[in-house]
Structure formats: C-alpha cells, structure tokens
Design a binder for these strands. Structure first.
Lengths: 226, 226
DNA sequence: ATCATAGTTAAGCGCAGAATGAACTATTGC
DNA sequence: GCAATAGTTCATTCTGCGCTTAACTATGAT
C-alpha cells in the first residue's frame, strides 16, 4: 500500500499534472488542447501527462468526434484535491482588501447541498450588496426587505426556520476563500435554482452548469453576469 | 492560489516526503532518525525534507533533549493524506484471501467516532471470530450470544436500537482495506473503551493510544495482542 | 575532559523524468 | 480529393532537485 500511495502522490505532485488537475477542479470536462493552453505547455506534453493520469484512473475520457474530453473519473479525486488545497499556507489577509471584480462566471460547485465556487460567493455578495442578508458579528441575518425578496422568489422562510438544522450560516469556500451561505436557507436557494432549471447538476462531479435560463435569472435577481 | 496548490502538491509528491507523511499517518510523533530509518535514507536527507515540510506548515516539531519529535501540525493534513490514499488504484482482491496475521498493534485511528486502523479491524475480526457479530449479505448482525456479550460489557443495545442513526454497519478502512464496525454500536464500543481508559485520545491528531489497562482488556475481551 | 549520539548546513554530483522535435493517425470541412 | 485541426508516439535532449560527502553544533553519557 505504501508504495502505491507514493506513486499516486508523485503522480499528483508533478507541477504540470497538478496544474491540469487544478484546471479540472471546476468539474467541467476539457479537451487536451484546452488543457495544454491552460497549463501552458505543448500538446505532446499534455498528451503524455494525461496518459499517466488516465492510467492511474484519476481521469477519464469521452471521445466526441476529433475531440477528447477529459474530466475526473470520480468525485473522490475532487475531494482529495480539495483536501490538499486546504493545506496551502494561508496568506496574511488584511480585512480591508476589496473583493476583486470577478471575471464572468463559467461554473460553480456544490458543497453537498448548497452553492459554492464562484457562483456561491457571487450570490452571497449580491445578497449582501442588496441588503437582503446582513452580516452581524460573523453571522448572517435576513433583513426586513430580505424576507419580502425571498417570499417573492417563492421561498418560504417560516418553513425553514422550523427545521432543526442550522437556519443560515456562512461557510468558507476553500478556493475562493470567501464566505457563502449555507444552512437551510442556502439549501432552499440552491434547490430553487435547480428546480427552476437555472442550474443543472452534472453526473460524475460536483460541478454545476448554468443554463441559459439561469443566466437570465442570475442577472435579474442577483445582478450577476455569467 | 494555483501556484500555491502546485507547490503544496509537489511538496507532498516527492517520494521521500510522501513516505515520511505515510509513516506519520498513524498519528504518533517520530524523531528525525526514526523517520530516516523508516523511509530508508540518510539523516541529512531527512533533515532537509523535514525542513521543507515544516516550512509548509504540514508538520510541527517538539524538542525533547537531543531528540526532535515530528508530527502533523493539524488534522487537516491527515485528512488530505487519507483522501489521497483513497485514490490509489484498487487491486483485484480475491475474497478467498486469508486475513494475514497482523503484527502487534501499536496504534489506531478514529473514523470520527468509531474505531478504525489496525485496532478497529482487529476488534471487528475478533467479534466475527467469536461470533458476537455475524456477517449476512454485506451487513453485520448481532448474534444471540453477542447480545449477552455486549450486556456483560455494560453496553445497552436496546438503547442503541432506538436511536435514529444506523445501528450497525461495516465501514471500509482505507489503509487496511478491511471492514470495521461503524454505526451506533461502533460508537458505543468506542466510547466504552475511552471511558474505561483502555484507549486515550491524542491532542492534535486522530490517533488513539492504547493504555496499559487497554492492553489487558483488549487481550481479555478480544484476544488481541497489542 | 572525551566520546557517542542527534540533528543541521553547505557544495557538487547524478539521474529520473519532464520537455522538445519530428513523424505519425484520425476526424472535420471544403 | 486536399488541407486543417486534434491528438498520439517515439527518440532525444536537458534540467531541477534529491542525494551524498563532509564539516559543523548540541545534548547526553562515562
């Protein structure tokens, strides 16, 4: 077992491969060429590395015409990489740091049952911005206007408040290093988005794709440009 | 963030360092020399690698006289390594494989609230051997004699059966690749062992140490030689 | 004091394995 | 058919980084 572990870790440990895996972390499938561009290396080199990752069963491929789409072969891979990512030394963050302007969002992930990734953070930012939720000593609270906003959306907060589970809490996203909403409110919002087909789950990963309908809705309700 | 991730993964990815981390996985602290022996390399080399792991805050040291004891600096490290270990390609296992004779047990880990690691597996084996629990189509059941055994130990099974959570289920240990008991029965057994001071929790890791009292008890109740 | 053991630091070598170059197959579009 | 794009294979080059040799400090034992 030990040497197997060592093999796997050196497989992941190579800078180029680590970069490939990092790129795939958003859950989408990428073609070989896309990955080559993303990690800034040659096609042959990418091909070699992808071969090794396939052999180790970390990735799988789907052929579509002359393209080959690579993605994680199962969600354990994503979990492991997330766990590794959580180990990176935390930079000294000043609280004054302005949140940067995020580039258009292409993807999001789920943190089991609520939204995370770029979208999760953006949604949370938007709710704060619109003062639908407000931060109070490291916790989130729903404002008066917020209650109206949620009921307009068709989300019944009274229901949620009755549940045993935590109603609303911030949850730190490991990659964005930003808070996003979790708790039953996070779940309700997430389910709403799925049910309305704004978002769609993917098969083998925790990735979520944004539908065309979703793009419009995100813009309308959250002023988020996808 | 990406380059930070790459740095961390190549840090873990080096074969020697991976072997060090693997050794430390049991949760105990090791001296530099012990690690050098364990991973079969020179003291200088170990020193260099340990330095890097310290810099990255994956390990921490405690000085005792002329010895330096190294261990994981926090449990996230162990979690990440476990997640990575779960990625190793599964060998074709024949079900006929006899369980090997395990060497004396020096450590165990907890799977959040029940026993795992060598002891967890050994305890489970013992319960099966003594027919206190029996395997039935991939599930565990408690036998007639088993019920007496548990009540003799002072564990109230009726209580546990009333609980909402799963009563008794096998849980695959990632490193031993063997089943051990989880569910509320696993938890009860684990708590019993902690309360009786057979086992003792350690501070910063998921490691559990076996006390002298525990050694005797494990021998008596489970015929396990620690 | 002296010797042994534990661990660190610095400098140069050596090699596994990543990157490159060139030649190849496969699919799409015209 | 031909050209263009996507991806792979193999032989060769090259280089980063781990390992060693050697000299060092520190603690403990006699």
């Amino acid at each position: 077992m030990e040497d197997q572990f060592i093999k796997t870790s050196s497989l992941i440990g190579d800078p180029t491969r680590a970069s490939i895996l990092w790129t795939l972390m958003d859950g989408r499938a990428f073609t070989a060429t896309e990955l080559a561009v993303s990690v800034n290396t040659s096609p042959q080199n990418i091909s070699m590395h992808l071969g090794k990752l396939l052999d180790a069963d970390l990735l799988c491929v789907e052929k579509q015409g002359r393209h080959k789409y690579y993605r994680f072969s199962n969600k354990e891979v994503a979990y492991a990489l997330e766990a590794m990512a959580s180990l990176v030394p935390k930079p000294e963050v000043s609280l004054k740091n302005k949140p940067e302007n995020y580039p258009p969002i292409k993807f999001c992930r789920t943190c089991y049952d609520h939204l995370t990734g770029k979208i999760g953070v953006a949604v949370t930012d938007s709710l704060l911005e619109q003062e639908i939720i407000v931060e109070k000593n490291n916790a989130f609270e729903i404002s008066k206007e917020g209650e109206k906003w949620f009921s307009d959306l068709g989300i019944n907060l009274e229901e949620a408040q009755k549940q045993k589970r935590i109603f609303l809490k911030p949850c730190l996203d490991w990659s964005e290093r930003r808070n996003h909403i979790a708790g039953s409110v996070g779940t309700l919002l997430f389910n709403k988005m799925i049910n309305e087909d704004w978002l769609r789950k993917t098969e083998n990963s925790r990735a979520i794709i944004v539908t065309g309908k979703g793009e419009a809705a995100l813009l309308k309700y959250f002023k988020i440009v996808v």
